[in-house]
Amino acid sequence: MAKAAILEQPGEGLVIGDVELADPAPHEVLIDTKACGLCHSDLHFIDGAYPHPLPAIPGHEAAGVVSAVGSEVRSVQVGDHVVSCLSAFCGQCEFCVTGRMALCLGANTRRDPTGTPRITRGDGSPVNQMLNLSAFSEQMLIHENACVSIDKDMPLDRAAVIGCAVTTGAGTIFNACSVVPGETVAVVGCGGVGLAAINAAKIAGAGKVIAIDPIKEKRDLAEVLGATHTVDAMADDAVQQVMEMSGGGVHHAIEAVGRQASADLAVAIMRRGGTATILGMMPLDCKVGLSAMDLLSGKKLQGAIMGMNHFPVDLPRLVDFYMRGLLDLDTIIAERIPLDEVNAGFDKMREGHSARSVIVFD
């Protein structure tokens, strides 16, 4: 029996209740969850902007300790400290074998829907697993390719935010954008993902790192994490400011919010030959585009789901960056809360003034 935060109806918050987790199947891992970050992606499902079968347990930015493994599991063992990843990979499809694991649809990483579910209530009724993880729970039952073992000296509350925010933000810098030292990077939106991108741009040796956000507290955090310049996103001359700071536009414009206006801003501040990368989960009816002149100027527009990560390789490296003092995860975490305060944590996220809240399980 595990305590979990369950989404019963969109718009009504999460309900704390008890669930049962099945025994691990051959390729599954049972994890005692130790920490889980609150991510804006969860909020899209909680508020009903994105559909999902209900009831379900959200949460996907987690770290914990392996308590049991299935008969075929070879990548982790009982007692390992692990970080989970929502982009579970099958290892066999076109995307996996061409090195684009983040695009894998993970077909064989889920249980057959006609079989025994991973999560049930006490009466045996199924609870849907969100994004293959459902980490707002004292335990997770996931496929072995949805987690990776890490250094046991790594604090698990900091490790948790690597699982989504840092993998997405930093992965975009290192993988999707392949930032070259000296290039200029602008990040629109300084939440957890945006702050991680800013920190990674500094690590990658970007010449200028421009943080764009309407909230001063977040622009101040961005400066702590490596931003060389900041711009108020709501300023009438925001585009002009960036153009002047960057000498005609940025090499890489990264949208880390999920709003039409911020995506349009990212497109508007590219230099000739620049790339705009959209990370945020925008409303499903939104479109982002390039004009004919943008295309004639060699500009590019791309998505980068989960930072186009190579999860088993990238994540231990990010842990190492933290342990060596290069990656600043302490500044990204604004507060640590118990599971019972999850709804208050999301209320704080809606207000938009602070960085990551992390649930810590005793």
Rank of each mutant, 00 (worst) to 15 (best):
A2C: 13
D80V: 02
R259M: 14
K287H: 15
S84W: 00
Q240C: 03
T275W: 03
R158C: 00
A25E: 11
A5E: 00
M245H: 05
N108R: 13
S178N: 10
D232M: 13
V66H: 01
G163C: 01
R74S: 14
A197R: 00
N309E: 02
K152G: 08
G99W: 06
D264A: 05
P338V: 02
Y50N: 08
M234G: 14
V97Q: 10
D320L: 02
V166S: 10
P51C: 14
G249H: 06
E144V: 08
G247W: 03
T228V: 06
G106N: 06
T116K: 09
A5W: 07
R336K: 15
C190S: 07
D18C: 14
L133R: 11
I142E: 03
V66T: 12
K152I: 04
G163I: 01
H353R: 11
C39M: 04
I31Y: 01
G17Q: 15
I333G: 12
A88R: 04
L38V: 09
K202A: 14
A222D: 08
D362V: 03
K348T: 13
H310V: 02
P155Y: 02
I162T: 12
Q139D: 11
V193C: 00
L43V: 04
R118K: 10
D213S: 06
I31G: 10
C164Q: 05
T109W: 07
D330R: 05
I359P: 01
A146L: 04
V76W: 05
P117K: 11
G91V: 02
D47R: 13
C85T: 03
L195G: 05
D232W: 15
T167G: 02
D237M: 04
F95C: 02
P10K: 11
M270H: 09
A170E: 01
D294N: 14
Y322P: 00
A186D: 01
E183N: 10
N175R: 12
L284Y: 12
E8Q: 15
L105E: 13
S75A: 14
L131T: 04
A204Y: 04
L156H: 04
L318C: 07
H52L: 06
I173Y: 03
H60P: 08
T114Q: 06
I337R: 05
D18N: 15
M293K: 14
T98A: 10
A170R: 06
S87L: 03
H229F: 09
E12A: 15
H310R: 08
V187F: 06
G106H: 04
S84R: 00
D153S: 13
H40V: 05
A22N: 15
H52D: 05
T167L: 06
L225G: 08
L225W: 00
